[in-house]
Structures are given as C-alpha cells and as structure tokens.
Write a protein that binds this DNA or RNA. Structure first.
Lengths: 329, 329
DNA sequence: TTGTAAGCGTTATCAC
DNA sequence: GTGATAACGCTTACAA
C-alpha cells in the first residue's frame, strides 16, 4: 500500500468527470445512469483502480477477512484444512488471514489479539489452550474442541468413527482389539474416539484393551506394550485401532520390528485420512475425516447472519478407507 | 468487527480523562507523561481496547499484513512453506493473508487483485501463470520462478542440487544414471535441476539419460521407459534422479513392480526433502530444500526498506539427506 | 509535554 | 439519478 502511488476514488471521479459518490455507487452495485457507469468503469480501468477494502471496512464495519488459527500448517490434517478453509472463504469472496501457534497457549492468545486488531469478520480456531479467552465481539467457530454453548464447535463424528473402526475390524475377523491413543491432555472432541471404540466393542462382546498416553510420554510405551503382549511369535491382539494415522504409522514400524506381518497377523486402523504427499494414497487403513465439509460448515456458521440461534456442536460423518493395513485392501 | 461493540480510542480517552491524541501516542510509543501513560493503559485494559490496524493503516499507509499466494496448501512443500512464511512474518509482527490458486492462471491473477484490494504491504508468490501481471505498486517477491530483474526471486540452488544428486549417486557406486522430470511447462527455477544433473554427469564422464515429461503426460511413460530398459532381470541404470520426491515415490512403486530392489539393484534420489506427516522421515533419499531459509529470506527481502537495489535472484544452498533409497541409509 | 484539528479512502445521508 | 457532506478510527502536524 505504497501511498501516493495507488489511485483513489477521488482520482477516478476526477478522471471520469463525475462526483465521488457516483464512483462509490458504481462499485457497490447501486443503480446509476448507464453512461455514468461506463465513464466510471473506463476511468477506473485506465487508472488501474482497486477499491481499498480497509477504508471500506472502516466505514462498513466489515472487512471481508476471516482468520484461521492452527497449531501449525505442515501437519497433513491441518494443511488440508487450511487449504479447504481458504477455498471455502474465497468462494464467498472472503480473504483468509492465517496464523500458526506452535501449540503454545500464549501464542494462541496472542494470535487472537493480533486478529482482533485486524478487525477480521470472524475467527475459525483449532487450538489447545485450555484457558483460551474467546472475544465476545467477534464471531468464533471452534474446530474439534467444545468450549461452551455460545461457541459453535464443528467436528468430525469422532464417536461414530471409533465405532466404525471396530465394526470394520470385527467384520474383517478381529476378535481381540486394542486402542492406542496419544495426544494432548486438553480435552477435545477427538477423545470421543475412545468412547466409540469401547461402546462398539462392548456391544459386540469383543475383548478389548486401551492404552491412552499423553504427548509427553512419547511413543516408546506403545512398543513396550506390544512387546509385553507377545505370546511367543504371536501378538495377543489381532486388531489395533490408533487415534491418529501418525500413531498408526509408527505402530506399523514397531510391528515390523516384532516380526509381525500386517495385515496377516494383525490389522491396523488409524484415524484422520491423512494422505501421502497431501493428496495421494493413505498411510494406512483409516477413518477419514471429511475435511472439505468441516471447512465448508465452519465457514457457513462463521458467516451466518443470524447468530442468535447457532448450533453449539455439529458432528460431520466420517467414512472408512482401506489403506493396506487391513485385509480388505 | 461488529460495530458499536468494540471500544475505540475515543472511548479510552474519555475513560482515562485525557485527549484522543494522547491515547494515540501511548499506543505508538511516543513519549508521554508517565501517569498519563498509566491512566491510558489502565483504561484500555478495562475496556478491552485493541487498536484497529485497518484504520491505522488507512492513515499510515501500512497495514502490517503480507500476502502469500500458493498453488495449494496441502502439498507438503507448500504446506511447510506456508508454515515457515507465517512464522517469519509473525516474528516481525506481520500477519499473513494466504490465498490458494489451484494452479489456475486466472485464479492467480484474481488472487493478486484480491490482495491488492486488501492493501497488503507485500506479496510473496509461488505461481504458474506465465503471463502474470505483477502490480508495480506493491512489493513482490517470487519464489522458485524468475520474472524479470525488477522482481526479486528466491529459490533453492536447483542447479547445485542436481549436481549434488549426481555426486552422491556416483559416490555410492552408480555408473549409469537417468533423470526423470515431470512438471508444468511454465519455465521455473526448478528446471535447473536437469542442467545440474547433466553438467555433473558430463564432468564425471558418467553415462546418462533424461526423460522429461509434462504434467499432462501422466506418470505411465516412466513405467514404460523403465520396462523398455530392462535387460532380462536387470535395469539398464543403477541410479535414478527424480525432479521431485513425489515422482521418486511413484517410481519406487514401479521399480517394485518390475521386481527390482531399492537400493540394492538401483538407487533413487528425489528432490524437495518432503517428509512423512510433514515433519517425520523422508519419503526417499533426497535433495532437501531449505524451506525455513527460503521463507526467512523472502520475508526479509519483501520487507526491506530500501527497495532501490534488491538482488534479482537469490539461490539458497540445498543439502542431501539419505532416506532409504540409497545405499548410505 | 498535552490537546486540537485536519485528513487517510470509503460509504451513507441528504438535498438537488 | 446525482453530488456535496458528514462520519468511520486513527495519525500527525501544529498550536497551547
């Protein structure tokens, strides 16, 4: 925005020989005499004029910009989400301001302050700060984490996903399942995956175990767990459900180290639907999150005019995709 | 930016019992009496005041926002770049406006218009539109593609990377190399990888071949090429250099289909340094692009005050990383 | 040092 | 339908 170099409405008005207000009307699709309209448009083109959306926002109280707050942009799930949200916003002629927090609670709050200053029209946030203060003045949509009834949360049907994983594994012949979980200790929607797993196992009378860890524990305990559950050459489980594809991928490596074949000896299902190179094959058989819908729904709710009665939680259906670590591939 | 609900400087001034200008000074670090300062800060905190950076930008001619234009955000390289650029900008107290173009030339031009409207302070663009019109009024830095001397371009040392790949493969015992290339036909810096490959091969007297394709050709020709170069059980080459990790990954699969072992029968090196799940292991042995430096350098140049004598091209050093498809892993 | 007032580019309200 | 004019929230001479 180098000053003095960009033409303004005033310049266009002078060039077109009309009044300032007339130019404004043309760019706001407010009826105006056809020849005036032409003159203005011609002058604008000639000068290379672009409306200044900040000045417009200053007056109109809208900026045409929404913010997306993410822990990072390189994780496949977050990257795909950023891509989809960006597109969903663009479709509605909105721009996307993106900030990454590195999962640092302070950085997250800082990000919110930053976007508050930028007077965005709304914020979509996927954060891990348990004490996050959400500005009441700006529409906010949370992804994957429920705050309170006043903050709409959009998430995948994590519980249903957990059930689906069990159903699939059971249908593929598994009789003894184990659920591996790793993640933050900030409670989030993703925690429901375990509930779905347990419920489905109980409903089907399937023997099951759970090993739920925190990020700070690292991945080694899973290896130790597997080793301690080896019965000679065989593992005590014939099916493993991991709460993320990343974990499943690590577990795959551990199983190989134990001399176990996947999917022959043990079948493995992850969660997320992460794809190699962002859009290729799955890393493993997985419960796929509907990222496009997640983005679209979040944007819809964020930009909803009537904010008096928004749903407080929306769960979107997940699906199952074979990815080579189950017998159906 | 719901109007009427957010406090303004005027509110703070009234609350603090000082003049409007005084409040402004406090928020711009312009010396002010200490007790005035305190009163203003207290009032601001009490009201939850945040400066409106749009209004500020309107006056100051700077908005504290830069735009990043990418083909998409899900490709691991672009995702990592987005993450790094976002961080580099944040470090300088800048916000990042991101747009994805889907590699559609029109969309790319459209994106530029959009960010022009938003009066960003600068644009970092990685685009494939050969006829892209770059606005003269806004600082622009191009990544991976040289436009003209007036548009600074930041890229990896692609030529050096091509040479490095040959050096490594040669050091690992390869004697007959082939270079596989796929990509757009818009000339970009990445094309220099081939030049580096050929130069290094010639310098070392290594027998070499090249198969350079366009995206629209698809991957099948590579498979056909490999098949036609099978000499009984053996491939006519003992080393393959691919212009991207993605291609290398596909080729890996083709080689397996041909009953060839990697790295025993043939060694494979890709380009980019893409990592599984964004930050884990490499997909293959690869020439790693210095994404962090790419981002940092781009931002440095973009925000450089003195724009009178900027470099027109900066190539950053790449490195080699073994990733299981060469004998040094 | 502090307060005042004139814009920055746009939109909205009026008389014309 | 058109064209002055007053905000919008902030910065910045300039006056006090």
């Amino acid at each position: 925005m180098k000053r003095g170099t960009m033409p303004t409405m005033k310049d266009v008005a002078r060039e077109a020989g009309v009044a300032l207000g007339t130019v404004s009307k043309v760019f706001n699709d407010i009826p105006v005499g056809e020849d005036y309209r032409r003159r203005v448009l011609d002058a604008a083109r000639k000068l290379g004029y672009q409306v200044n959306s900040y000045a417009r926002g200053l007056k109109a109280g809208k900026t045409g910009t929404a913010a997306l707050i993410l822990p990072n942009a390189y994780d496949p799930f977050f990257a795909a989400l950023a891509d989809s949200v960006c597109q969903a916003l663009a479709r509605r002629n909105y721009r996307m301001l993106m900030t990454v927090t590195g999962s640092d609670p302070d950085a997250e709050q800082q990000c919110i302050r930053m976007v508050e200053q930028n007077k965005v029209d709304g914020i979509i946030g996927l954060t891990y700060n348990p004490a996050l203060e959400i500005p009441a003045a700006i529409p906010f949509v949370s992804i994957d984490r429920y705050f309170n009834p006043a903050v709409p949360c959009v998430a995948s049907d994590n519980f249903g996903g957990g059930q689906l994983a069990v159903e699939k594994l059971a249908a593929l012949g598994c009789r003894r399942l184990v659920f591996f979980r790793i993640g933050t200790d900030v409670p989030g929607e993703a925690d429901k995956r375990m509930g779905g797993f347990q419920t489905a196992c109980q409903a089907r009378g399937i023997e099951h175990t759970v090993l739920a860890l925190n990020d700070r524990d690292g991945y080694e305990p899973f290896r130790a767990f597997l080793r301690s559950h080896m019965d000679g050459e065989r593992l005590a489980f014939d099916g493993i459900f991991c709460n993320t594809d990343r974990l499943a991928f690590y577990v795959l490596d551990m199983l190989a180290g134990l001399g176990l074949r996947v999917p022959e000896d043990v079948q493995l299902v992850g969660f997320d639907g992460a794809r190699r190179f962002g859009n290729d094959g799955f890393y493993c058989s997985t419960i796929v999150q509907p990222i496009g819908q997640l983005a679209e729904t979040s944007v819809n709710i964020l930009l909803e005019e009537d904010r008096s009665s928004l749903p407080s939680l929306i769960c979107l259906p997940v699906s199952y995709a074979p990815g080579g670590t189950t017998k159906d591939c």
